[in-house]
Design a protein around this nucleic acid. Structure first.
Lengths: 199, 199
DNA sequence: AAGGATACTTACTTAGTAGTAAGTAAGCAA
DNA sequence: TTGCTTACTTACTACTAAGTAAGTATCCTT
């Protein structure tokens, strides 16, 4: 919490967080260890403990950063100024990127399966993350239906929950059955949400 | 492999498998151990090894049994004789049961997150399981659209993949956000698949 | 030059993991 | 009753996990 942390400290801290996030999304919270991170980083496991004393704090830091990123991204002018279909497409791109970039699932998909074994702090933060994402998408969907650029039945919140659930699941499917299956599911989602003219 | 295995042996074997499956669906493959099973069963961990020498064999046995159950259920007269919407409803009931019965996810949802850390045998068996289930549902959807009892856009196989992905994800959502969210998603699914008259 | 903070390493503890080897009690079959 | 099989227990190996305490090299500040 010093006014300006030394560059090396910051670098290692960030690199730990990056690697931990990568391992978390690839293997799940219970299947990655300080040893994995240390080996990849070329340091000793105790060095990780120096930056993140416990795995709980490390895991919480991953979720917190994703939440910060979500808020920042969501509020970016180049995102807020898009039309609802474009905002939806921007969201889909995030998942497309994960599907293409090794078999990574999304944060929710990675943590939900292990949810009951997670520290309470992480459980709560994941709820917040998922809740805010759903809330944002519900707003996008509602606006899109109002201006006729998106179509769907039911409440925007229910539809947002369904779409995000499908997206989370689709990355798990990509891992098991390959990327092709993932794109089938995404095409299906787009077909249904976009009116005949745009689809 | 004797003609008639002693009753006690069979019982313990089955009880191990039942408990292991329960633990797997609740905590994931990497977060349950022979100790958990042994403790719940009132025996020593080595007794589990006697029946299932390795965790890989135990895990494979769980997937194999689910696959046997799926095939048996799918071919049951009381299932094959249902109309497509009734068959869909029967499928949804399986997920509703899991959602209500503690926070259990489905087999796919439990294993997909840990997929990269699973023994190759289990990976292959999960692919078979998921593939057969998708194939079955695609048939149901195709029949339903033909006779007008179900509605959806796109190929039946893509739609089946999407629906099953949503269902797998919805159980993970139930675990994180509670059962209510799960029912929102299911209602959304039903609304979209059933024509206005039946919905 | 001295002191202190930073960013580690070395060496350790504790606990949990899968898995194994040897022993044993109970039942059954010849 | 002898001997084999089943279904375990006891006691262990080997390994990995998270976490800690103490020591150290490097840098920055004064």
């Amino acid at each position: 919490m010093s006014p300006a942390a030394p560059a090396t400290a910051f670098d290692t801290r960030t690199r730990i967080l990056n690697l931990a996030e990568e391992l978390l999304l690839a293997r799940g919270f219970n299947a990655f260890s300080y040893q994995h991170i240390a080996k990849d980083l070329g340091v000793k496991p105790a060095a990780i403990h120096y930056h993140y004393p416990s795995k709980e704090e490390l895991g919480a830091a991953i979720v917190q950063r994703q939440l910060r990123r979500l808020r920042k991204w969501r509020d970016l002018p180049r995102v807020t100024e898009l039309t609802p279909p474009q905002q939806l497409e921007a969201l889909l791109d995030v998942y497309r990127h994960r599907a293409a970039h090794g078999p990574q699932v999304c944060l929710f998909g990675a943590l939900a399966a292990d949810f009951l074994t997670l520290p309470a702090v992480m459980q709560q933060e994941l709820r917040t993350f998922s809740g805010e994402l759903t809330h944002w998408l519900a707003g996008v969907l509602a606006a899109g239906r109002t201006d006729g650029s998106l179509q769907f039945a039911g409440h925007p919140f229910s539809k947002a929950a369904q779409v995000l659930t499908t997206l989370a699941g689709s990355l798990q499917v990509a891992r098991v059955h390959g990327e092709e299956q993932f794109h089938y599911i995404l095409r299906q989602l787009r077909t249904e949400l976009l009116p005949p003219a745009q689809a």
